[in-house]
Design a binder for these strands. Structure first.
Lengths: 344, 344
DNA sequence: TTTAGCACTCTCGTATCGAGAGTGCTAAAA
DNA sequence: TTTTAGCACTCTCGATACGAGAGTGCTAAA
């Protein structure tokens, strides 16, 4: 009953594609004149009516053309769109840029954000790769000044955390090094649970350090830490749907609400590990703040070792084909780079 | 000849203050009705004419009220405004927030950005403190995987840089530690020049490491590295002068052009070390990109040891009094915190 | 099932108009 | 010399009206 004829699917696809480009409601006459549908506008109108009844199209007002609903976009992305690839010249350009950036992760992240923003003409988000399951690798204690000690903790995957620590009384660098060395021997390769389960007697200092280590190990595994790179915020303002200052402001707020971003980047992406690109249209009921936006997300990295997330945020009327293929390509490129750096 | 009477200064100040609040051109009648100037509107009109001739006021069109010119704002900020302080309850609240944030520099930075943005209702910028003159403190070499080695370099002031290093052939952690230790003995307390001047023979590995260390030392002293924290971008869109999408887009672009920000944060602030707050109105001829914005900047930290920069970007029609006092206060607060952490 | 034809609806750009606000100037008053 | 009252003039802004244009839904015929 609710199933669409082939022609209806075609019309839906055409309307969505055109609407994405023009941001104008699409009318029946326009369609028959621009594509050889071999039917009259009246027939198209009938199909459009049907598509409105299934909830894929709507009219901004009586006697305007049709525009897609959120459901329409979802149906389009999942069933109609098909697979698109970035042009291979574009791919080569991107690869070249990363090649030129050397081995600097910070620059990779910025470049990824820039490429995503530029290719999709929307705002982009990238987080650096971090270990999936953090394991102790190396500890350094370095006295900086007075009773302040800098604790540098290296986790598996080359992640480095640093923290300041104030001692009850000054301790020489020499003694600190000995303490660090004993921890290095004791804890190498252990994760937070194993460390917590250790039944060794510690003195006060050692106990403090252990607590910090545990904190770090746990934090890094379930929280997003470090900079969230972004680029292309300005693109957001060029879209006509963001002319209303209110909506545009919401978009910016999303980018500065760390909590929300963390939720988004961790929660969504965990559901669907490395298999592909996720598309979130209009918040999908779960994120009120994203009601007016669509997000295309992917995870990248070396599964089990270190992964990061990247994505693009734009209007619901987003060029999904291009955006998805860009996100997919950059994610796979970064995955290769990260694997290279990890596996030598 | 070009000097203003007291009444003209008063009128200029009143117009600027009111215009900052209302964003509406101010007329002569409005002024006499709202402030007891004890003169008629015609007199005020004469003074306004004089102020227009000196270039401090202008009319958006014939027969509208007056609005300040950029020069008007500059004169106001430098000569008319006087010193303002944040209310002491506000100060206490801010201090309390920092107190609750613990000793975490990352959180300080975010909090500073948030406080600045919130208090001034504009967009804020903060960079973490970094050493003025970098001195070698400690080196660690940690083998991660295969021929990849993580090099952790600690500089004076507790700054930590990390870098990946690919060896020609695998080397055991044990031997790496020995190499690191010898560097630690040799280089402690030296800056880049002293290290470059060393006349010790190094093998290939050691030479590579020295080069990286020098790079790091030099980079950290003349470049801005690391995250630039920001907050309150959304505020930018609430100002009526940013209704034009074009101008608002420029504002966002400023925040994503790292190069520009670095220029701004380093160049401007070096001219005037820690003495006070700098106000840049409408780009002051030097920054085309900032034509439509004003920036209030200050440097904070422990002079000679480690300093950072913070500031606020908003429309030229900015509440300078409040913004300047906020920037000044947060800068001095952060300075105290940084000194505490450095000097124990 | 498709099509032609037609009446109907709604938006959008343009033109017009009057109210309101503010100025600049002149001539008188202080 | 400075201040003031008065007045003509200019410009913006909101409201209103109106017609062109686009697109629809429906009916009846192919």
């Amino acid at each position: 009953m609710n199933t669409l004829t082939e022609r209806q699917k075609l019309i839906l696809a055409l309307i969505i594609r055109d609407y994405i480009e023009t941001a104008q409601p699409i009318g029946s006459r326009y369609l028959v004149e621009n594509y050889n549908l071999n039917v009259s506008s009246a027939t198209v109108r009938n199909d459009m009516l049907a598509l409105s009844e299934t909830g894929y199209l709507r009219q901004p007002h009586t006697s305007a053309g049709r525009i897609p609903t959120e459901d329409g976009y979802r149906f389009f992305v999942r069933q109609l769109m098909g697979h698109t690839e970035l042009p291979s010249t574009t791919k080569r350009t991107i690869v070249h840029q990363f090649y030129q950036a050397g081995m600097d992760i910070d620059r990779w992240m910025r470049l990824a954000a820039s490429v995503l923003a530029h290719q999709s003409q929307a705002a982009s988000l990238v987080t650096a790769p971090r270990s999936e399951r953090s394991v102790f690798k190396h500890l350094e204690l370095i006295s900086t000044r007075g009773r302040q000690v800098l604790m540098v903790l290296v986790l598996s995957g080359g992640e480095v955390n640093q923290q300041m620590l104030t001692l009850a009384e000054p301790i020489s660098q020499e003694r600190l090094s000995i303490v660090a060395q004993s921890f290095n021997d004791l804890l190498l390769g252990l994760d937070s649970e194993s460390i917590a389960a250790l039944s060794v007697k510690f003195d006060a200092l050692e106990q403090d350090i252990i607590t910090l280590i545990l904190d770090d190990l746990r934090h890094t595994s379930d929280m997003l830490t470090g900079e969230i790179y972004h680029d292309g915020l300005a693109h957001v303002l060029t879209e006509p749907e963001f002319e209303t200052a209110d909506i545009a402001r919401n978009a910016l707020r999303v980018f500065e609400e760390r909590q929300l971003l963390e939720d988004l980047l961790t929660r969504t992406v965990l559901s669907n590990d490395l298999s592909g690109v996720q598309v979130l249209i209009g918040g999908e009921g779960n994120w009120e703040e994203l009601r007016d936006f669509s997000i295309v997300l992917a995870r990248y990295g070396a599964p089990g070792l270190a992964t990061g997330t990247l994505g693009v945020l734009g209007p619901i009327r987003m060029p999904y084909g291009r955006t998805i293929s860009t996100v997919r390509f950059v994610a796979s490129l970064l995955s290769d780079l990260v694997e290279d750096i990890l596996l030598e």
